[in-house]
């Protein structure tokens, strides 16, 4: 029983982290209908940002996250303005391969700049790296990352529901044409969405680096996780991303305990099963998977 609960706790914590890692992907998909295959690389850059910040200045990624958020917001806007702006009305194929091209470039750029070494940082002094909570052992970094994830989700939902810009973003995600006819500047909305999406992804990467190794091709691993989370939770749904992340975290926690080697395969088998049984995800909009995207 103790074991079941321990796995439950660590599953939920891991799930929160996964959800955060997937949120930016889902947001950009929801609004611009673009699946960003370079998503994992932005996450990887976020991990390196967290790593270097700590190594060079001694500021741990948690305190440094506002700075990383700002930098990645700008990076996200540049990503849209410099690249994706030209593909927004192109075929899906163009979008997929534009982002794949970027993914190849960024991955190798990281290799050039940071070498292929595996990097991680220790944020907690010895003896504080794990927490005792009701008799459970929990990694302090995971707990902090989990609270980061929850705070970001809450903030994002408030932003989308309560601010004018946020509601404009929702409007564009529901119906681009109608939003444009209502006088919403869709270019600006896309710009903000990419900024926000990449900003969240950068912070996600930074808070992940204490518990996951950073290396140039780590993005490939995370982009697939993010796909699973997004499909599990529902395409374009923010709340769905949390649900999907936690569901995956739990599955991985239990499967990983009994059969660590199958952990990774579970992701993909789950993804295929889900796409075939319930392609719109647990909380997603039905029919999204059938829509031929712009």
């Amino acid at each position: 029983m103790q074991l079941v609960l321990q796995l439950l706790m660590s599953g939920i914590l891991l799930g929160g982290v996964y959800a955060l890692a997937a949120l930016g992907l889902n947001m950009i998909f929801g609004v611009a209908k673009i699946v960003n295959f370079a998503h994992g690389e932005f996450l990887m850059l976020g991990m390196y940002a967290g790593f270097w910040l700590m190594v060079l200045t001694g500021i741990n990624p948690y305190w440094g996250s506002p700075l990383i958020a700002v930098v990645f917001f700008v990076l996200g806007m540049a990503f849209y303005w410099g690249i994706m702006r030209f593909t927004i009305y192109s075929t899906e194929l163009t979008q997929v391969f534009t982002t794949l091209g970027l993914s190849i470039a960024l991955q190798n750029l990281a290799l050039v700049l940071f070498s292929a070494d595996y990097r991680t940082i220790q944020t907690m002094p010895d003896g504080m790296s794990s927490l005792q909570f009701l008799g459970f052992h929990l990694s302090t970094d995971r707990v902090i990352a989990f609270f980061f994830a929850m705070a970001i989700f809450a903030g994002l939902i408030l932003f989308l529901k309560r601010t004018f810009t946020g509601r404009a973003i929702e409007a564009v995600s529901q119906d681009l044409m109608a939003a444009r006819l209502m006088g919403i500047d869709t270019q600006k909305i896309f710009l903000i969405t990419f900024g926000l999406g990449i900003s969240i992804t950068g912070v996600a990467g930074a808070v992940l680096v204490p518990s996951f190794y950073a290396f140039p091709s780590v993005g490939t691993f995370f982009v697939l996780i993010a796909f699973v989370v997004v499909v599990l939770g529902g395409l374009g749904s923010v709340t769905g991303t949390v649900v999907g992340g936690i569901a995956l975290g739990l599955i991985e926690s239990y499967v990983g305990y009994f059969s660590p080697d199958l952990k990774e395969a579970t992701h993909f088998i789950l993804l295929i099963l889900l796409l075939s049984i319930r392609p719109h995800g647990l909380l997603g909009v039905k029919g999204a998977e059938k829509e031929t995207l712009k």
Binding site: Q95, V96, I269, L271, I272, L275, P279, T292, L293
Partner: peptide
């Protein structure tokens, strides 16, 4: 996979 279209087909086959 054939129940999906476009980028979803791509994701399923990738997995």
């Amino acid at each position: 996979a054939f129940r999906m279209r476009g980028v979803f087909f791509a994701m399923a086959t990738l997995a």
